[in-house]
Structures are given as structure tokens and as C-alpha cells.
């Protein structure tokens, strides 16, 4: 239902407008002597808080292991489909124990032109391998440069100590004996053929 609101009838004083203008001028004049609230950007930097959602990056743990196992859940959850992962086997000749991890991303692309910084990738990651970092200065000379590849993502993410390291040392605990070493037997059988 339409509700009629009567307009406030101006008094002759208000109708002069000049007092209102004067008070406006007073306001702006006073404002001139307030401290500046802006930041001189390239020299001064804003404080970046821990939960700031900047560019996503991949992290390594304290052993230098890339934590991502290319489970592709971030690729699945990513609302703008910015993430593309090429999964693959664990890298050859890695210095740390890959016996239980087996899998690692061969390539990992995040299209920063598509990324909306929602942080879902960080939230869904079961390996705590992808984080929204404090990196907010993204600029490039071409569109291709803003598609971050694995190398760039590890540069952004850097190293982040992992207190749990759930995959570490699993093979050390392998129960002694009891299992036939199938790899040996398989190889021997092949030679015997």
C-alpha cells in the first residue's frame, strides 16, 4: 500500500539555503585539517593479515616436499574453473620418501585472470598444499604470464612447515617380515622365462 509521506515544510530560514551552504562549507573546511587516511602505495604497504586472500600458491613442507598430490579437488571446487592440473606419478629421483604418496602434479596451472580469490581451493585441500597468500601485486605484460604454472605457484607459496607430515616415514614402520617381496619374485620370474 502506498504510504504518503508529507514533505517537511521548510521554514523561511531553511528556505534561504545560505545557512545550509555555510554549514557545508564549514564542514569541508574543517575536513581539510584532518589527517590523511590514504597510503602512499608503492612506498608504503598495507598490513596484510594472515587470513588475507591474495594469489593462491602451492607450498612445500620443511623437507622441501611439494605437498600437492594432485587429487584435483581444488580443480573440482574452483567456481570460475581457474585451476587446471595435469596429474602424474611421483617424480623420479626425489630425495624424500614418496613410497606412500605416489602421486604429484606434473603441471599445475591457475589462471589468475579467472581466479576470484574465493579461497575454496585452500579450504578444500585435504593435503594443506594450496594457500591463499598475501601476494596482491599481480601484473604482467601478457595474458599468458598471468596463467601461473607450477614453478610460479611454488615461488608464491614458498615453504610452510607442516606439524603433522602425515605421509612421512610410513615405510619405516613396515612390519618386519611376513610378506613375500613380490617385486623381487616378479623380476626373478621374468628373468627365468
Amino acid at each position: 500500500m502506498a504510504k504518503v509521506v508529507d514533505r517537511h515544510k521548510l521554514t523561511w530560514y531553511e528556505e534561504l539555503y545560505l545557512p545550509a551552504i555555510a554549514s557545508g562549507l564549514k564542514r569541508t573546511f574543517r575536513q581539510m585539517f584532518q589527517p590523511d587516511i590514504t597510503l602512499q602505495y608503492p612506498e608504503e604497504r598495507p598490513q596484510i593479515y594472515d587470513d588475507y586472500r591474495g594469489a593462491p600458491g602451492l607450498v612445500r613442507d620443511q623437507d622441501g616436499r611439494e605437498k600437492c598430490v594432485s587429487c584435483q579437488l581444488c580443480e573440482y571446487i574452483c567456481p570460475p574453473k581457474a585451476i587446471v592440473i595435469v596429474p602424474g606419478e611421483a617424480p623420479e629421483g626425489a630425495t624424500y620418501d614418496y613410497s606412500h604418496i605416489e602421486k604429484a602434479p606434473r603441471e599445475f596451472f591457475i589462471d589468475m585472470l579467472r581466479c576470484i580469490y574465493c579461497g575454496y581451493c585452500e579450504e578444500i585441500c585435504p593435503e594443506q598444499a594450496i594457500f591463499m597468500t598475501g601476494e596482491y601485486e599481480l601484473n604482467a605484460g601478457s595474458r599468458q604470464e598471468l596463467v601461473h604454472d607450477k614453478k610460479r605457484l611454488y615461488e608464491i607459496g614458498g615453504l610452510r612447515p607442516d606439524p603433522i607430515q602425515k605421509w612421512k616415514g610410513k615405510d619405516d614402520r613396515l612390519d618386519a617380515g611376513g610378506f613375500t617381496d613380490l617385486r623381487k619374485r616378479g623380476a626373478g620370474a621374468e628373468e627365468g622365462e
Binding site: 612390519d175 610378506f179 613375500t180 613380490l182 619374485r185 616378479g186 626373478g188 620370474a189 621374468e190 627365468g192
Partner: peptide, 17 residues
């Protein structure tokens, strides 16, 4: 299947792969 109980596992037979 080789072994018993908790150590049971599937294993290749003696003829290899």
C-alpha cells in the same frame, strides 16, 4: 592370498607376472 589373519594379502603366484 598369502599369509593369515592381519597379514593376509593378495600376492603373485610363482609363475611371475
Amino acid at each position: 592370498v598369502e599369509n593369515m589373519g592381519g597379514k593376509s594379502t593378495i600376492t603373485l603366484g610363482p609363475n611371475g607376472p
